[in-house]
Design a binder for these strands. Structure first.
Length: 350
DNA sequence: CACGCGTGGCG
DNA sequence: TCGCCAAGCGT
């Protein structure tokens, strides 16, 4: 399997500038720029950067402002500051870039991944890289359970990566590491893996089980934030019509009662009056409270406080833009959100 | 182990 | 239009 992956890499690898010339400084700069950044976005900036700062000493001599200027648009500017600090530290110590991953990792901005990448690609050290691509490829090849970030998953991936480096990667550590990452970037894609083009498909346990989309598992979403929102139900005295408005984004265009979110510490009644006035030019006075109920959207736990409400003064002759009256048994074909329907069910029969 | 850090491309 | 990232690191 490893021979097939390496052969595939030789045939399909992209021609990236730091591949033609595995100069340690160029590899280092490239790996830092590639942190959380796409190759296409990084390439032009990379060429400018290494032309302007061809070695650590040149970077060390530059002002931080000039370094950041060369980085502008790439994001994660702490990377540029760390690289600058690292270059200055090297300059004071004699200027040589450490050859071992363990020593590289001591430098600012150089973590487990970058240390292994530079040591293997530039110096041929047999240390395995583990990045997002490697996690995904190995999780599928070996059907590794668990989600990235979880200790058990990370431990197992690390074991597998180390073992593969020992087994078939050590002859050319840089090539093996890049082959695995390139496979993840071009074939073993996060969403729709191109298993038909994969040199390792025959050995892939996820593929054999028809479950390549199930690996790696998705990390559990962060805990839902708890918020409150309000709605006001205004009924026309004569016909029992309900006052509604069209939503702005999100759920733009859908029907809903006037109202909106409570600010921190704000009472629902006050929030209703404020939101109805500010957002919809409806001056409302909250009356009897309907039973509060929960509603969940994605990672938000919303408590909905609905009130019967009346106009602050006389009923306006013309409703503001976006507001209108509808029958309580609103005709089918009118799109309304879930909160609207839940509030509707709380209302007593007219 | 959670979080913040930036940006551009994609469905 | 918008959520979801993509070759991580430091705190």
């Amino acid at each position: 399997m490893q021979r097939r992956i390496l052969a595939w890499f030789q045939a399909h690898r992209r021609a990236l500038p730091f591949r033609d010339d595995p100069d340690p400084w160029r590899v280092w700069v490239a790996e830092v720029m590639l942190q959380q950044t796409r190759v296409e976005a990084m390439l032009p900036r990379y060429r400018e950067f290494v032309a302007r700062f061809p070695d650590p000493a040149t970077l060390a001599a530059a002002e931080e402002e000039a370094v950041l200027a060369m980085w502008s648009g790439l994001g994660y500017y702490a990377r540029a500051r760390a690289l600058h600090r690292a270059a200055r530290r090297l300059a004071r110590g004699g200027g040589e870039i450490p050859r071992a991953a363990a020593a590289l990792k001591e430098l600012p901005g150089v973590g487990e991944y970058t240390a292994a990448a530079v040591a293997s690609i530039a110096f041929g050290e047999a240390v395995a890289v583990v990045d997002g691509n490697v996690r995904r490829v190995l999780a599928r090849l070996f059907a590794v359970p668990g989600a990235p970030g979880r200790a058990a998953f990370e431990r197992r991936i690390r074991e597998l990566a180390d073992e593969l480096m020992r087994a078939g990667g050590a002859a050319d550590p840089g090539a093996w590491n890049q082959a695995l990452m390139e496979l993840g970037a071009l074939v073993c894609l996060p969403k729709r893996p191109r298993c038909g083009e994969c040199p390792a498909a025959g050995a892939c346990r996820a593929r054999a089980a028809g479950r390549e989309a199930d690996f790696p598992e998705r990390a559990p979403r962060p805990a839902a934030t708890v918020v409150s929102t309000t709605r006001g139900v205004v009924r026309d005295a004569e016909e029992g019509l309900l006052l509604v408005r069209r939503r702005e984004s999100p759920l733009r265009g859908l029907l809903d009662f006037p109202g909106g979110p409570c600010r921190a510490g704000e009472s629902p009644r006050r929030a209703l009056a404020r939101e109805a006035s500010r957002r919809y030019r409806l001056e409302l006075v909250p009356g009897r409270a309907l039973p509060p109920f929960p509603h969940q959207i994605m990672h938000r736990k919303i408590t909905v406080f609905a009130f019967e409400a009346t106009f602050a003064g006389a009923s306006p002759d013309r409703l503001p833009e976006g507001a209108r009256w509808v029958r309580p048994d609103h005709p089918p074909g009118i799109a309304a959100g879930a909160i609207f329907r839940k509030v509707l069910r709380l209302l007593p029969a007219p």
